[in-house]
Design a binder for these strands. Structure first.
Length: 600
RNA sequence: GUCGGGGUAGCUCAGUGGUAGAGCAAACGGCUCAUAAUCGUUAGGUCGCGGGUUCAAAUCCCGCCUCCGACACCA
């Protein structure tokens, strides 16, 4: 019985290009997971988009002499291209500046407001003296009133570690233009998190399948919940859908409140775009559906506390959830089933830092290297359980000694031998026990690797699959078919047949991790169609006349399935070429020099 | 300051009560079909330090050293 699986992927922030640490955390793992479930025959809906509101966008715009709209248009394009080039198979990768997203966000806000979960409160806010915009705490610096440190931030002193209120700073000034901030009373809307505390506690307590750190961190976090402000004094964001605010352009919904709503709005957009406007309910108003969220560890509370509160608050009400009829009627919006958070990737032992030049952007990386080696590295050596380090020398080594040597070479030696000697899948003679044993072990990968993938243990899953590839190399070394073929053509053909069948199965087992090279292999083996793909961009124009680009794909046309591969005897092979390139050791020095150059 | 995470073979990392693991690097050997790729064997660790619980601890508890992260109006 196929399951409905929502793969909800963190929304990359559109204030600049994304580096490989970002895609290591949310992108590659979520795509492996989605591709696996599609191959299994489950109904996968994978959604995300660029997150385009908030103060950093307006600052980036000021710095570059552009409007916020121009900034997000540029980086939506860049980031979308990156994800496409990495083969991240979103059903819908959209953006938060669509009309649809504004409408869904406003509906959630209005529904929560009408149900009493959003309250108004006057607060003291800091504003830029020059632009009049909200000045977030971290953009204010001054002298720490406790230790006298001169560069304390508004929210915390980095020297003595005390938490601060920006109003306490001595000589406060804006980090953006150096001017002292203006403090004044301002009304804001607050999400009443304490109203959800007990429901959250009970719900999180039951989630024993979550990674332990996610669960305990969240349980700890909800011990002291306060109402959380969800609006900002800013002219860039989703307007507040109340009569007295709708025409004002100085107060908007806080970027985090609307960004998580993107998971829902993108699902609704997906359904509209494909002409089945109710189809999103199969995932959102279906108690059997499972929702998996992928993000970096810095985002955990937004996905385990704040977003679930919003969902609990809306429940089955509002313009969208409340309009359900038939089987979907009065079914509450589904809460996360699992929240898969990753740790952080570092770069040559340091934190990624665009300003300090300690960075490699995805588009820069892919201009010189192929996507599959990057996907391989980020899976086998990525920050799944703890922070891990990206180094160029380790990347070259993993590529040359593991990906190329173990898997690439197995494919290449098998295909070139079979192509040269038979040009097609050879007819085997009777299989011997060691032939059967190898096939059984490799075919067992569908169960062993599949189990690991379902548990979101990507590193272990890939390790297991690579172990199987190494087993086939061992088999070939033992059997020496290139020798046997000279004396006993039938036995030689049998050995190559067995190896080829293993390769055909590994082609499927590795597809979630290495979609591009597995497609290539699929074709060399003489199969037709898309093993898993293709991705494409579609432009959609909304009611207000503006159009935007969506990354999507024709995944229903896939011919791959997560099951023992059928390899018809006599199927003609295509002339093979190596799947991967071996990298020269010199690229390590070149890339380090390039990074050094960027730091100047 | 509070909370949390890490410290396991030369390197990068698995491993949450039962004789210490993988990959790479190293040494030796086999093969030479294949992108000088592959296969085998060997060597290599008092699992940060000290104490405790247990028949049994890398794994649970306490203390310490050390590195890192989070601490909510940055996303």
């Amino acid at each position: 019985m196929p399951k409905h699986i929502l793969v909800a992927v963190a929304w990359p922030y559109a204030n600049g290009p994304r580096h490989i640490g970002h895609v290591a955390g949310f992108g590659v793992p979520s795509d492996i997971f989605a591709r696996y479930h599609r191959l299994k025959g489950n109904y996968v809906l994978m959604v995300s988009g660029t997150d385009e509101h908030g103060t950093p966008i307006t600052i980036a715009a000021d710095n570059e002499g552009l409007t916020p709209r121009q900034v997000v248009d540029r980086y939506n394009q860049v980031i979308g291209d990156d994800l496409y080039n990495l083969g991240l198979s979103y059903d819908t990768f959209t953006r938060t500046t669509t009309l649809n997203h504004y409408q869904v966000t406003q509906d959630v806000f209005r529904t929560l407001y009408e149900k009493g979960y959003i309250i108004r409160q006057e607060t003291m806010g800091a504003f830029s003296a020059t632009t009049g915009r909200t000045l977030p705490d971290r953009y204010i610096e001054g002298t720490c009133p406790i230790c006298g440190y001169h560069e304390a931030r508004g929210d915390q002193c980095d020297n003595c570690g005390h938490q601060l209120d920006p109003a306490d700073l001595l000589n406060p000034r804006s980090k953006i233009d150096g001017q002292p901030p203006v403090f004044r009373e301002t009304e804001h809307f607050f999400l009443d998190l304490p109203a959800f505390a007990e429901r959250l506690r009970q719900w999180i307590n039951k989630q024993e399948h979550w990674r332990p750190n996610v669960r305990s961190f969240s349980l700890n976090f909800i011990k002291e919940l306060k109402p959380r402000p969800i609006t900002r004094d800013l002219d860039w964001g989703v307007p507040i859908p109340l009569p007295e605010y709708e025409q004002r352009d100085d107060k908007r919904i806080y970027v985090w409140f609307d960004a998580v709503i993107g998971y829902l709005s993108a699902s609704i957009e997906w359904a509209n775009n494909r002409g089945t406007p109710e189809a999103w309910r199969d995932w959102w108003q279906n108690r059997q559906a499972q929702h998996f969220y992928f993000m970096g560890k810095d985002n955990i509370v937004f996905h385990t506390v704040i977003w679930p509160s919003q969902l609990m608050g809306v429940f089955s009400d509002g313009q969208y959830a409340g309009s359900a009829i038939g089987a979907f009627a009065e079914i509450p919006l589904q809460l996360p089933y699992n929240v898969v958070s990753s740790e952080f990737l570092t770069m040559e032992g340091k934190k990624f830092s665009s300003s300090r030049g300690v960075v490699i952007y995805v588009n820069d990386f892919l201009s010189r290297y192929d996507p599959d080696p990057l996907r391989y590295f980020l899976t086998i050596a990525g920050p799944e359980n703890q922070d891990t380090d990206f180094t160029w020398s380790e990347f070259v080594r993993r590529n040359n000694d593991e990906l190329v040597a173990t898997w690439g070479n197995l494919v290449n030696r098998t295909l070139t031998n079979v192509y040269k000697n038979f040009a097609a899948v050879p007819t085997p003679g009777p299989l011997q026990p060691n032939d059967e044993a190898l096939l059984a072990e490799v075919e067992g990968g569908f169960a062993s690797c599949g189990e690991l993938l379902e548990a979101a243990r990507f590193k272990a899953a890939l390790t297991e699959t690579m172990r199987l590839a190494a087993q086939v190399n061992t088999y070939l070394s033992d059997q020496e078919p290139w020798k046997v073929l000279k004396q006993d053509r039938e036995r030689g053909a049998t050995i190559w047949y067995v190896a080829l069948r293993c390769v055909a199965n590994l082609r499927i087992l590795l597809t979630p991790f290495l979609p591009f090279s597995c497609q290539q292999l699929h074709e060399y083996l003489g199969y037709e169609g898309y093993l898993a793909g293709p991705l494409n961009f579609q432009a959609y124009t909304e009611a207000h006349g503006m159009s935007h680009r969506v990354l999507t794909g024709d995944y229903e046309s896939w011919v791959g399935t997560w099951a023992i591969a059928d390899l018809p005897v006599g199927q003609a092979l295509r002339e093979p070429k190596p799947l991967f390139k071996k990298l020269d050791e010199r690229v390590v020095a070149e890339e380090l020099a390039r990074m050094e150059e960027g730091r100047k």
